[in-house]
């Protein structure tokens, strides 16, 4: 089965064309890395696939479900890990996780939540308001939420930024686990070195057009 399949996705703002007929396929158990300079349309593409925006033309499917017509089914299977960590400042880490899981219709045992919070090394701060978290800690908490939600399709926007070495290692493990579960991962990043360690295929977005690039070029060329 195909995790993400986009057909001729275009997005236009007035006369500014952000995406031009992007075709994209990410299989299950496959990680696709997306490169490109700032403003190339990476985030827009991820937002469209995450059902946050509609494409102007073209269509896409997540696990065989139409991303516009069967939005609610699609939303239950995918998760976008973006810059804003989707955390409420006045709730503590624990409550944030509970709220996020509740909206996904999940209720997990406290033990399980505790284990994951410990894994991303913020178990000790579980009772602290997120307002007092550093950017890296927020990112780790967002990562914990994603781990608990166990999405089948994972969309990552600049996942490696603001994380420290240990954090990146945890993220990498999580990506590999998702792939092992048969999930699909699409990530937009500037970190070619890290991406090469998990990605099976890669592409470059330039002025809204997507071009595939061979993996071995990641070591030698700079695509951003």
């Amino acid at each position: 089965m195909i995790a993400i399949s986009g057909q001729e996705i275009s997005k236009t703002y007035g006369y500014y064309q952000v995406l031009r007929e992007v075709n994209l396929e990410v299989g299950c158990g496959e990680c696709y890395a997306l490169f490109g300079p700032n403003g190339a349309g990476k985030t827009t593409l991820l937002r469209i696939l995450a059902t946050l925006q509609r494409p102007t033309t073209g269509r896409f499917e997540i696990l065989g479900r139409d991303g516009v017509k069967e939005r609610d089914t699609v939303r239950a299977t995918l998760l976008l890990l973006a810059h804003g960590c989707h955390l409420y400042e006045d709730l503590n880490a624990w409550e944030n996780v509970q709220f996020a899981l509740a909206l996904r219709g999940l209720s997990l045992a406290q033990r399980q939540v505790k284990a994951v919070l410990d894994r991303v090394a913020i178990g000790a701060f579980a009772d602290m308001k997120v307002r007092f978290f550093s950017a890296g800690m927020k990112k780790r908490l967002a990562l914990a939420k994603a781990m608990l939600a166990q999405p089948k399709v994972l969309l990552l926007d600049e996942p490696f930024s603001t994380l420290d070495k240990a954090g990146i290692e945890i993220l990498k493990q999580f990506i590999l686990e998702t792939l092992a579960r048969g999930g699909g991962v699409l990530m937009a990043t500037h970190n070619q070195e890290k991406a090469a360690e998990v990605a099976k295929r890669a592409g470059v977005l330039s002025h809204g057009a997507l071009k595939p690039v061979p993996l071995q070029d990641l070591k030698t060329h700079d695509f951003s």
């Binding site: 236009t12 007035g14 006369y15 500014y16 064309q17 002025h207």
Partner: peptide, 14 residues
């Protein structure tokens, strides 16, 4: 008109 202009502009940049 805007859309056409945008498409041409984009092709030019590309």
């Amino acid at each position: 008109l805007h859309a056409k202009k945008g498409r041409l502009l984009g092709q030019f940049h590309l």
